[in-house]
């Protein structure tokens, strides 16, 4: 390990001022440079053994963030410290070695599995590539993995098309945990599944996290699934993190107006909680990420915005302990959808 690329960090993963700009300029001699700032300066850290959720609507840069950490994309700027090693600076064999510890689960279990490979070979592939096991040992490990994710051993000779979406996602998970990685990036792992299957997969992931001592980054567009599995949640909007805190605080007392609106927009599965009058509804559409608004990027849709918000970009800082917000006027009594002190008796 070269000491040049090593930095002290108490976290498993720390991301500093990460940026990814895509050049969309057309033609060789075009004078105007068009940049899509998919990720535009984000900071976050992930502690060992926790789950960090990243949520946001389309075009907010959440998937790009996942791909950057995985090094599927090269960052324009910034540092990705994994166990202190800056992943953006290493390559070749060194990167390959580090990658054993970071794996990914994808959204679409239909396109992320090779249709010409049998289940056994799909799960065995990472073990073979990284030379972790072979022969009898390999077979044993693959069967153990199939047990762990709840796939019947007799399915090992089948092809992906013979499985339902939920089972395919189990295959994807088995492949991801095969090398006993430290960090797994889950990019919308349950979005394509039916509700009853979603909960099966979420419960399986929670179980595996304990069993294999895993750390997750869980990326999704919807808060409900993220809330269930995450310890802390980062909310992204147009390439920036606007709020990052524990899930309790996020749902009880959000400080960023966007989070407040995002939380209020979730349809609650309880008809007695319909409130047609007091409902906060975020107006307007998400602006184009190629031409984001000046100042605070949310100001065009924010009910509390003023002149300052139009001109100055708010700094992402810790306003309360462990509660990071990027807003000029963070809410003092933001409206969450969970009461701050839940009445336990009522739940029966």
């Amino acid at each position: 390990m070269t000491s040049l690329n090593h930095k002290e960090t108490p976290y498993l993963l720390e991301v500093r001022n990460l940026k990814k700009h895509f050049d969309l300029s057309e033609g060789w001699f075009s004078r105007k440079k068009v940049l899509l700032k998919a990720v535009d300066g984000i900071d976050l850290h992930v502690k060992h053994g926790e789950t960090l959720g990243i949520v946001g609507e389309s075009g907010c840069g959440k998937s790009t963030t996942g791909n950057l950490i995985m090094r599927l994309l090269d960052a324009t700027e910034g540092e990705i410290l994994f166990e202190g090693t800056d992943l953006t600076k290493i390559k070749g064999e060194e990167l390959r070695k580090k990658r054993e510890n970071i794996q990914m689960i994808f959204q679409d279990p239909f396109s992320s599995l090779n249709p010409r490979m049998r289940v056994f070979d799909i799960i065995a592939e990472p073990l073979v590539t990284h030379g972790a096991a072979k022969g009898k040992q390999l077979k044993e490990q693959v069967f153990d993995l199939m047990d762990a994710v709840g796939l019947d051993r007799s399915y090992s000779k089948r092809y992906p098309h013979e499985f339902s979406g939920g089972q395919r996602q189990r295959i994807g998970i088995a492949r991801a945990i095969a090398l006993k990685p430290k960090l797994i990036i889950c990019d919308e792992p349950v979005s394509a599944l039916d509700v009853s299957i979603q909960s099966q997969i979420l419960n399986l992931m929670a179980k595996l996290q304990k069993e294999f001592d895993l750390t997750f980054i869980f990326i999704a567009h919807g808060l409900p699934a993220v809330k269930y599995i995450s310890d802390r949640i980062a909310v992204m909007y147009l390439g920036k993190i606007v709020e990052l805190t524990t899930k309790e605080k996020l749902f009880q007392k959000p400080m960023h107006p966007y989070t407040e609106g995002l939380v209020a927009a979730i349809p609650i599965p309880d008809p007695t909680l319909r409130n047609p009058d007091g409902k906060i509804i975020v107006k307007g559409d998400i602006p184009s990420p190629t031409n984001p608004p000046s100042g605070c990027r949310f100001h065009t849709r924010c009910a509390y915005a003023d002149e300052t918000c139009k001109k100055e970009t708010p700094i992402f800082e810790e306003k309360e302990e462990g509660h990071f917000v990027a807003c000029h006027y963070p809410l003092n009594n933001g409206k969450g959808i969970i009461a701050e002190k839940p009445v336990l008796a009522e739940r029966r």
């Binding site: 009853s196 099966q200 269930y228 609650i268 959808i337």
Partner: peptide, 20 residues
């Protein structure tokens, strides 16, 4: 039971076993 209860702090997701 398998729908996430966003309005509750402690939730439990009980899934339906098997598939359609």
């Amino acid at each position: 039971d398998s729908t996430p209860k966003v309005h509750m702090l402690d939730e439990e997701l009980v899934s339906i076993e098997g598939t359609v």
